[in-house]
Simulated scan of single mutants.
Amino acid sequence: MQLNAQNSNFRIGLSYGFGSEFNNKNYTFANHFYKAQVYYGFKESRNFEYEILLQPEINFGKHQLLNLYFVKPETPNFEQKRIEYMKLKEVREYVLNIGFIIRKPFAKSYSIYFLGSVGPMITDTETERMSSGFAFADVLAVGFTADYNQFRFDVRPSLRHVSNAGLGSTNAGYNTKNIEFGISYQL
């Protein structure tokens, strides 16, 4: 993206991604998600471009406790909670991530970039790892883009951590590895 008088500094886009927890013997967590994206390019140097990214997201997860001993006997109603948490649960997460991108263009139409984002999240399902309600989603990603006319095609592997920062009664959170595919359009 060249930031000049002919082109807008804004891009809008959509992406789809999926992932799962790292190898874990205590629980399973698999997810897929959709994001709307608004990019704003605010600075360009000789070698790099800098962008702010706003990403509303809906995340569909499936979670199941595998290790019933994760719920300790000190937990009130621990036997009942073990039974409840051992069932496969569907988890919905509603996220508004705000990110910062450092992009390195190469060749005429390609670039690689680093993305760091964080944002508030609402989760609708309590698990042994996290209370339902307010939480945060943090993402670190490295991506590759290819431009064609005003379109940009994007592939983005990422690491994601969600937790409630100790604001809820349960806060072990989830860590996932994801891959995301997107398309954006320069306004």
Rank of each mutant, 00 (worst) to 15 (best):
H63I: 02
F151I: 07
V139G: 03
F10P: 00
T123Q: 15
R103V: 00
E90D: 15
H63C: 04
Q150T: 13
N26G: 08
F42R: 13
V162L: 09
E180P: 07
N7S: 12
F136K: 04
H161Y: 14
E90Q: 13
A5M: 09
I183L: 04
R156G: 01
Q64P: 01
E128R: 02
I58N: 08
I98L: 15
E90W: 03
A165S: 13
F114S: 12
E126R: 15
Y174Q: 05
S132C: 02
T125M: 02
P73S: 13
M130N: 00
T170G: 03
I58P: 05
P157I: 10
L115S: 01
E74Q: 08
G61H: 01
N149W: 07
Q186W: 04
L140A: 13
K72T: 05
D124W: 10
S111R: 00
F134R: 03
S8H: 10
I102N: 03
K104M: 10
K43E: 10
Y40F: 14
Q2H: 11
N31A: 11
R160C: 09
G13K: 01
S131P: 01
F70A: 11
E74S: 14
I122E: 11
K72D: 07
R156E: 13
N164D: 06
A146E: 00
S169W: 05
N23T: 06
G19C: 12
Y39G: 00
R92P: 00
Q2R: 14
K104Y: 07
Y69P: 00
G119L: 08
I52W: 14
E51C: 00
N97E: 13
T127H: 05
Y34Q: 05
F114N: 09
K43W: 10
F100Q: 02
T170C: 00
I83H: 08
V142A: 13
V91S: 01
K25R: 12
R129F: 11
E126S: 10
K35M: 09
A141L: 06
H161I: 15
P76N: 14
A172I: 13
Q2F: 10
P105C: 07
K177T: 07
E128Q: 13
E57V: 05
E49M: 04
S117E: 12
F181H: 06
S184C: 04
V142E: 12
Y69K: 08
A146S: 04
Q186A: 11
N59A: 09
K72S: 14
H161V: 15
K87F: 11
V142F: 14
F42C: 07
M1L: 10
G13H: 04
Q6R: 12
K108Y: 10
N175Y: 06
N164L: 03
L187A: 05
I52Q: 01
K81P: 02
K108D: 15
Y40R: 06
F70V: 10
